[in-house]
């Protein structure tokens, strides 16, 4: 049976993991290679790296980081953050990333999705969507770009469908309302998107407890859950998370 994926997310700046972690057994908790190896041994199903570097030098560093991680870690790796062109994608894939995630660049230039999928295959192209709930009775969610700074007046469900038509093989969905609050994923949003498309959806933003992961996978119908702080700060290990989910009848790889 296909299992639900548990995905730790690491933010990397200039080759270092930011939003530190508090694992006691690591020599250097800011080293992305060491953290990746740690999660690999722990049984994470996949890793997502978000490069929040703003400079070209930092970006070169990220390519090198991906290369070193892929030499040690034999699990799927997704890299996102600041990828704008086919060439940016190619560099990451050649370095050892399995998938690249695009957000702002895909919204501004949707053809990037199509060309990326044609060139590298849909399975490589993850479209990341940052969505925020609209005020008012009609509800719905609006897409934001530029790290959640800028609303663009596009409906998140419509954009999700369009991204998949263009060739996205997976969606990484972040609720901006929930992100950072550790009070649970936006279940309604997750479910709406997951039911609107026929590709896997990774729920992101808001995980504070194991129950939150369970809800996103069950009620939200997500195929995978991404979380940062609940894993990084050692509140829950990957193993413990999976045992909890398995105990509630959710298929996971133990």
């Amino acid at each position: 049976m296909l299992t639900k994926r548990i995905i730790p997310c690491l933010d990397v700046k200039d080759g270092r993991v930011v939003k530190g972690t508090s694992f006691i057994n690591l020599r250097d908790a800011g080293d992305p290679v060491e953290l990746a190896s740690f999660y690999y041994r722990e049984g994470a199903d996949e890793l997502v790296f978000l490069d929040i570097t703003a400079t070209p030098e930092g970006r070169d560093t990220m390519v090198d980081v991906v290369r070193r991680i892929s030499e040690q870690v034999f699990m799927p790796l997704t890299v996102g953050g600041g990828l704008r062109t086919l060439d940016d994608m190619r560099r990451m894939l050649k370095a050892g990333a399995d998938k690249v995630s695009v957000n702002t660049a895909a919204v501004l230039n949707p053809d990037l999705i199509r060309r990326g999928a044609d060139k590298f295959g849909s399975q490589c192209i993850v479209v990341a969507i940052d969505a925020k709930r609209l005020a008012g009775e009609e509800g719905g969610w609006e897409v934001y770009i530029s790290s959640g700074q800028k609303p663009i007046g596009i409906d998140a469900i419509k954009w999700a469908r369009r991204a998949v038509e263009l060739g996205a093989g997976e969606l990484l969905l972040t609720s901006m309302d929930a992100d950072g609050h550790r009070a649970g994923y936006d279940i309604e949003l997750t479910r709406a998107i997951s039911e609107a498309v026929n590709v896997p959806v990774i729920a992101s933003g808001g995980a504070g407890s194991l129950k939150d992961l369970e809800l996103a996978l069950e009620a939200g119908r997500a195929d995978a859950v991404l979380a940062a702080s609940i894993f990084h700060y050692g509140s829950h290990s990957i193993r413990e998370t999976k045992e909890y989910l398995a105990g509630r009848g959710i298929p996971v790889r133990l």
């Binding site: 296909l2 639900k4 994926r5 026929n198 896997p200 195929d223």
Partner: peptide, 13 residues
Amino acid sequence: PSGQKVPHMGWNQ
């Protein structure tokens, strides 16, 4: 076949 998500992506037995 349709009826489930495609691609088949993830860990399976």
